[in-house]
Design a protein around this nucleic acid. Structure first.
Length: 586
DNA sequence: GTTAGGG
DNA sequence: CCCTAAC
């Protein structure tokens, strides 16, 4: 049996069963959400998106269907559900379901409401292998792509087994208030959807590394906070989760890992027969801007509690013979220097900045704490008033937004409320990445490299989300949220100088010693960093000046790099030869 | 924990 | 800078 036949067949039955209970779009409120999104996109001039899910361009191993009419949409929702249950081989996809429901598909076809040519189901692998394949539902007219990606490790056994029980397929209408609880039983899919790629990796468990790489790549593009946002659709289906991937990136390579977003539905099923035509037929695309919709908890109060702000690393310069009291004052001044310029609050959801102040929490996806990977707030110096931190050596100050920080608990000492206001002095205060023990004095005047850091300016607090008063629900403890990429700190010339000097002395194979010697008090330069920097220095020295980027490194320094590198490589070769004379080939 | 090298 | 194998 062709998979589509199977799916559509079962879909029909599901439709009949669920038609009366489906509630996704049956309220004006939810419709308004959709309209809001579309309006936003219209205002933002979001370009029309081509349908990339035409035949042959779908993700490998995925079923991609385009549903145009309402009937098709209905079928889509049912199909998605079916897809879930098909994986439960003993369950819903049993013979009776297959045989008894084929007529439903036929019905759709004969009524003309379901155009065969408008529906494509792709399974680029095994057409019959419904297990382990993602089902993509693509609405070509609204450009909404819903890709229930599959993490089979988590999705199958627990979530879908109960589907054998037909009653499970019936959706409660008034389930909103319990959606969070449902979510625990909801399958969370996490496969990235990758259109236009057939041969890429198969559905796989998205690992921490993958998420991390996504962030990294985004960061490398300098758009971690600006990359296109996904729309979060919290569909009312307890069984389904979708991953939506936008499709407009020119570079698939980046896209494949950059953009993944999964959301889980908790209640009800994806039914769209009630979406008004005016909405469905709209040319406005769903694709752009910082929109993330949640159709859940629209009327549910969102309780947030910020327990503490984590204060990033502050570099304090103070004489060693200063008193503790003066140290306290200096710290205070450092903080004050940052705060006095005025602060701005940024809201981060899953690492992405929500810029639209007019968006509702529901629209922003902050309405359901269960669905928050993490929510964070940043305190940023007001760009209009905040004095720029004194930083003579920083040539390209990091955007405050680039601080990517997550749920690491902040020490109590670091909370602002423990700081007593004192009259500010002319203290240089440069906030940097958090490091609890990082407030330190520079007692070593020769350590010139200590003074050149830290361009970042963001205070990143930790947010606790409360769903009930006093009961703090920890943010989802995903590996992803624990990953914090260090900010990029280009080496200054004086750092390079220090590095070259140390390597000249110690060689290229003792990076720990180099670190201890030249960067001991510079916490954010690890010996791996120094090794990497040396690597790039050698490379830089070998390329033409025209090809070099960033702050120019004096040629004499580069010359020293080359000579030192040559020397120490030679030494290394010598010692190797001495140690293993007989291993050398003739 | 360090080193070395690829990404 | 990140990641990881190898030590």
């Amino acid at each position: 049996m062709h998979p589509f036949d199977l799916l559509a067949t079962v879909a029909g039955e599901l439709l009949a069963e669920r038609e009366s209970t489906c509630s996704l779009y049956d309220t004006a409120e939810r419709t308004n959400h959709v309209n809001t999104i579309k309006q936003k996109q219209l205002e933002n001039g979001s370009p029309s998106k081509s349908d990339v899910f035409d035949q042959g361009s779908c993700d490998e191993g995925s079923f991609v269907a385009r549903f145009v009419s309402h009937e098709e949409r209905r079928a889509a929702s049912a199909l998605a559900l079916v897809k879930s249950h098909v994986s439960d081989k003993d369950g819903f996809a049993g013979k009776s379901a297959q045989s008894g429901l084929k007529c439903e598909l036929q019905k759709l076809k004969t009524t003309g409401s379901l155009k065969n040519d408008a529906i494509g189901i792709h399974n680029l692998e095994d057409p019959m292998d419904l297990d382990g394949k993602a089902l993509a539902l693509v609405s070509s007219d609204s450009s909404v792509e819903l890709t229930p990606s599959v993490d089979y490790h988590s999705a199958h056994s627990s979530s879908f087994q109960s589907a054998k029980d037909g009653a499970e397929l019936v959706v409660d209408k008034d389930d909103d208030e319990n959606s969070s609880g449902r979510t625990h039983n909801c399958a969370i899919y996490s496969k990235a959807f990758k259109p236009h790629c057939r041969g890429e990796s198969r559905a796989r468990k998205v690992t921490t590394s993958n998420y991390w790489k996504a962030d990294r790549e985004a960061m490398n593009d300098g758009e971690i906070w600006n990359r296109d946002e996904e729309i979060k659709l919290a569909l009312h289906s307890r069984k389904l989760s979708y991953t939506r991937q936008r499709t407009q990136r020119s570079s698939f390579k980046r896209k494949k890992s950059l953009e993944r977003f999964s959301f889980s539905a908790s209640n009800g099923g994806f039914c769209s027969q009630d979406v008004p035509d005016s909405l469905v037929k709209s040319d406005t695309k769903f694709d752009s801007s910082d929109q993330r919709l949640s159709y859940e908890s629209a009327d549910h109060p969102v309780k947030l509690s910020i327990k503490s702000f984590r204060v990033p690393e502050l570099f304090i310069e103070i004489p060693a013979n200063a008193t503790v009291g003066s140290l306290k004052r200096t710290v205070m001044e450092a903080v004050t220097a940052v705060l006095s310029g005025g602060l701005r609050v940024g809201v981060l959801l899953q690492g992405k900045k929500i810029r639209d102040d007019n968006k509702t929490l529901v629209q922003a996806g902050i309405s359901n704490t269960d669905k928050l990977d993490n929510l964070g707030f940043t305190l940023e110096p007001n760009p209009n008033r905040a004095p720029q931190p004194h930083n003579s050596n920083s040539r390209e100050p990091e955007s405050p937004n680039k601080i990517l920080t997550h749920a690491a608990p902040a020490p109590d000492q670091a909370t602002p409320d423990t700081l007593n206001p004192k009259p500010p002095h002319n203290t240089t205060a440069n906030c940097t990445e958090s490091d609890h023990d990082s407030v330190h004095s520079h007692t070593n005047p020769s350590s010139s490299v200590d003074q050149m850091y830290d361009n970042s300016k963001a205070l990143v607090p930790i947010l606790a989300v409360k769903s009930d008063a006093l009961s703090v629900i920890p943010l989802r403890n995903s590996r992803r949220s624990e990953m914090v990429r260090r900010i990029r700190r280009p080496f200054s010339v004086s750092e390079v100088e220090a590095l070259v000097q140390a390597v000249e002395k110690l060689g290229t194979g003792r990076w720990r010693d180099v670190k201890l010697r030249a960067f001991d008090s510079v916490k954010h330069r690890t010996y791996v960093d120094l090794k990497d920097k040396w690597k790039t220095l050698v490379h830089t020295a070998r390329i033409s000046p025209q090809q070099r980027r960033g702050e120019p490194v004096p040629q004499d320094l580069l010359d020293r790099v080359l000579s030192a590198h040559a020397y120490w490589c030679q030494q290394q070769a010598k010692s190797t030869r001495l140690a293993e004379p007989y291993l050398l080939p003739a």
